[in-house]
Structure formats: C-alpha cells, structure tokens
Design a binder for these strands. Structure first.
Length: 469
DNA sequence: TTTTGAGTTGTTCGA
DNA sequence: GTCGAACAACTCAAA
C-alpha cells in the first residue's frame, strides 16, 4: 500500500477530516502537503490579512502534526507541477484532498488529476452535506433556500460516532524537502487567533452549557452591539473546524424546548452556507454575474467617489460607517451590518453589487466566494430567492432597531461618541448648537449624508423597474 | 400536466 | 405609537 499524500487546501484540522482519514487508512505513512499557489495569492479577491490568518493556521497545523511525530510539507508553485514532482521523489500511491466547489478549485483539481501519476481522490467535508446529497426528487438542484433547507433537515442528523477522531500519531517519510510557511506570527490578526484549537474553543464557548450564547441566538443574532454570534466564520472558511462537527454540536445543544429557537436558527446559518456552496457548484456563472441574468442590465451609477466613501466608512450614515470601519479594523463584520451596508451600496448608492463583493473579499477574514457572492446577490435581489426588489433597508431605521443604544456606532465611529442616543443614527437632525456641543459639527467632524435616502430609494426602484421590462 | 401555496432578514403610508 | 395593507407580480417546488 505504501504512502499517500494528504493535500491540505482549506481543511486545516486534524479532527473530523475525511481526506486525512482516508490518506491514513491508505497505508503506513502519509505526506501532508500544502501548496502555496501564486495564482490564489495574487488574485484580486484576496487580502493580506486573510492570508496571514491562513498561514497562522498552517503553522498551528504543522505544530499539531509535529506533536504527533509527523510534519507539514510546504511547497510553492503550481499545484499540479508540485504534486506531480512530489510523486516522483517519494514513493506515493495516492493523493487525497477535500473537495472544493469554487470554479478555480474545480479547474485546478482537474489539471492535478491529469498531471498525477497516481489516483487522486476527493472527499467531502467542506460542507455538512455534499451538493449532490440535497436535490429535488427529479435530481435537479434547488434554487430556493427554504425547500432546500427542508430537504436538508430531512436527512438524519450527524451522530457523535460520525465524527472522525484526530490521529494519535502521524508517520511521514523522512528527507522530503519543504519550504517555509510564508509570513510570521506577528502578522496574524489579534482578534482571530488562527488554528483548530481556537476554533474548537469558540465552538464550545458558543454551544456549551445552559447559558451558552447559542440559546440567545434567536434574540441576539441581529444585534451588532452584542457578542451574540459564534464568530466562527473565519475558522469554517479554512476548515479549522469541521462544519459537520459544528452542526452536530448545534443539534446536541437543542435539548430544552425554550432554547431550541436559537439552536435552530444557528443551524439554519450552516444550511445557508451549504446552500450557497451548492449554488456555486451547480451554477458557476454566479461568480461573474447575476444568478438571474436579466439583472445584469441594471443601469448602475458606479460613482467612484461614493464607492470610496462607502469603503472608508464616511457615508454620513452612522450604522453604515460603523460597520465599514469594523470591517477595516478587524477583518470581520456582523451579519446584520453586512446586510445594511450591502443594501446601502446597491440600493442607495446604485453601485454594482460586484464592487461590494470584491471589497468584502479584499477585507474579510472569512471571505469565501460562495457565501459572499450569495449574500451580495441576495442583498441586490439578483440571486436565488425571489426577494421583492422594493425591500430597501432604511439605514436610520436599521440603526435604531438593531443598535438601539448606539453602542455599536459609538464604538466604531468615535467622533459620534457624545451624540445623544436620540440622534445617534441621524446626527444631522440635531440643531447646529447641539452638534457643536457634542463635539461633532456635521460636515466638519463627521460627513453629512452623501445621499438622501428617500430620493435614492425612488431612484433605485425606477432602475430595477426598468430591467423588469 | 395542472394547480396551488409559498417565498430569511423591509419600509412606508394612512387609519 | 401602533397596526395592517400595499408594495408587484413571478418563480419555484411539490402535490
């Protein structure tokens, strides 16, 4: 049998890893390899902070392998060439990797399969359920979330016995040349410590015990001023924790009827993740344009200066600016905030949702093509669900509803620190003397609104009505 | 094949 | 302040 390569891509974990388990079962030793692919590193949709998070995860993975007697081999270059070269220098009889559904990954894996002199096996594990698992009765994919989620939930829940244990020992052949993991620990994001240990700690914190946040999730998840979410998204992005394990823990937490609502909604977020991966797999055209192509004809305004103000958190709408600054400062943004800023960019500024999609990919630690694209298309109303196009968020009302005390705004927009709560989401309505008293004259210390929401709303309704013919 | 029910997250207006 | 209706039809999934 001999040796198998475990090709690590976005499954940086030892627990519940199907590709690793299959490689270990293949023979007596494995070669864990990560290939640093310059095409991915140089993509327009990548950012240094996310790379630093990934590289930090690789250092943790390497340490975990070394603690078990193994090591992580790092190569730089074209994956097909590097893996084929490795097969020539080591006696390898198979390659195992976790399947990834992005168009680039699919094309790359086809090239790798062609280049390898040994069998190349792809396993599940990126999603809780594979895209081929949750189909309509006629075998075609769902394009609407709710029936998809019903079918998804009809599958038997994952069991504790399904979870694949981390290996106690890992045997790696000696004398295999390895490069270095790029970057260093100083570059890692301080608020998101990379690696499987931190991911498991966060999951336990979120689900363990009767007072765990998951039980309040139904009430707290929409509040960007609270710490009500798991903040696991960057870890799921790189497989530092298994999505199946996360789903299992959610099911297991759902013992008391009073807390079931929070558990159920959090599970539905994992189902959304599966759904958008499934959509990207079956409809790869969404990567370039609208799921519904008729919406590619919208007459976007695409004003560069307005886009720059949005990116910088200088729109004059406090909830929007707080969210954009949270993103810039931390690489993460609360889900409610993501919807608010997306609606503002698309509906108020009339800017192509793909500009926002790209900016998010350039900022987010959890930036994932499928989830990010799905979210943007949902906000823009160009995507899978038939959300009515007149569903336009009012940035003032959203702020008042979901940041009622203005704590989120004050945290991320310090110049509004002393604005009274009554005006925190519409500071331009303060009397000039009150603006000065609060240390924040509008138009000087903080911008006046860059668009009038009412007028913008009427404009975007007309723009969408035009393409509906 | 036809029919029927339903669709993540909202806002505004008028009573 | 609170409530229900209107916003606009259309597509999807399933019976």
């Amino acid at each position: 049998m001999g040796t198998a390569i475990w090709w690590v891509r976005r499954d940086l974990r030892l627990t519940d890893n199907q590709a690793l388990t299959a490689a270990l079962q293949h023979g007596e030793s494995i070669v864990p390899v990560f290939v640093v692919d310059p095409i991915l590193l140089n993509s327009l949709y990548v950012n240094e902070r996310r790379c630093a998070f990934l590289f930090g995860g690789l250092r943790r993975l390497a340490a975990a392998l070394e603690a078990r007697g193994g090591r992580l081999i790092v190569r730089h270059g074209n994956p097909a060439e590097e893996l084929a070269a490795l097969c020539r220098t080591v006696e390898v009889s198979a390659v195992y990797a976790e399947q990834d559904y992005s168009p680039y990954a699919v094309a790359r894996d086809a090239r790798v399969a062609h280049a390898l002199p040994v069998p190349f096996h792809l396993t599940g594990g990126l999603t809780v359920r594979a895209p081929s698992e949750t189909l309509k009765d006629d075998g075609t994919p769902y394009t609407v979330y709710t029936p998809y989620s019903r079918r998804w939930r009809n599958h038997p829940p994952p069991q504790r016995s399904d979870i694949l244990p981390a290996p106690h020992t890992v045997s790696v052949p000696a004398a295999i040349a390895s490069g270095e993991v790029p970057g260093n620990a100083a570059d890692e994001p301080p608020n998101f410590v990379p690696g499987e240990i931190e991911a498991e700690r966060r999951l336990r914190h979120f689900v363990d015990g009767l007072a765990a946040p998951i039980h309040d999730y139904a009430n707290h998840r929409d509040r960007p001023d609270l710490e009500g979410t798991s903040q696991l998204s960057p870890y799921l992005r790189f497989g530092m924790i298994s999505a199946r394990l996360a789903a299992l823990e959610a099911y297991d937490a759902s013992t008391g009827a009073t807390t079931a609502a929070g558990v159920d909604i959090w599970l539905s977020e994992l189902i959304w993740r599966d759904f958008y991966m499934t959509i990207l797999h079956h409809f790869p055209h969404v990567r370039r344009g609208s799921f519904r192509p008729e919406y590619d004809a919208i007459a976007w305004q695409n004003d560069e200066a307005l886009f720059a103000a949005w990116c910088a958190g200088q729109t004059g709408y406090p909830i929007v600016d707080a969210a954009m600054r949270q993103l810039a400062a931390t690489g993460w943004m609360h889900n409610r905030s993501r919807m608010v800023v997306a609606s503002f960019l698309v509906k108020d500024l009339l800017i192509d949702w793909r500009w926002g999609e790209r900016w998010f990919m350039q900022q987010l630690l959890d930036g994932d093509l499928a989830a990010n694209n799905g979210g943007w298309q949902w906000s823009a109303g160009t995507g899978t669900d038939a959300a009515p196009y007149f569903r336009i968020f009012n940035p003032v009302a959203q702020g008042q509803k979901f940041d009622p005390d203005g704590a989120y705004v004050r945290r991320w927009v310090p110049e509004l620190q002393r604005v009274p709560t009554r005006f925190i989401h519409e500071p331009w309505k303060m009397a000039r003397s009150d603006q000065v008293r609060a240390g924040c004259p509008i138009g000087e210390k903080y911008p006046a609104p860059i668009v009038d929401h009412g007028a913008a709303r009427r404009r975007v309704l007309a723009a969408y009505a035009a393409v509906k013919g």
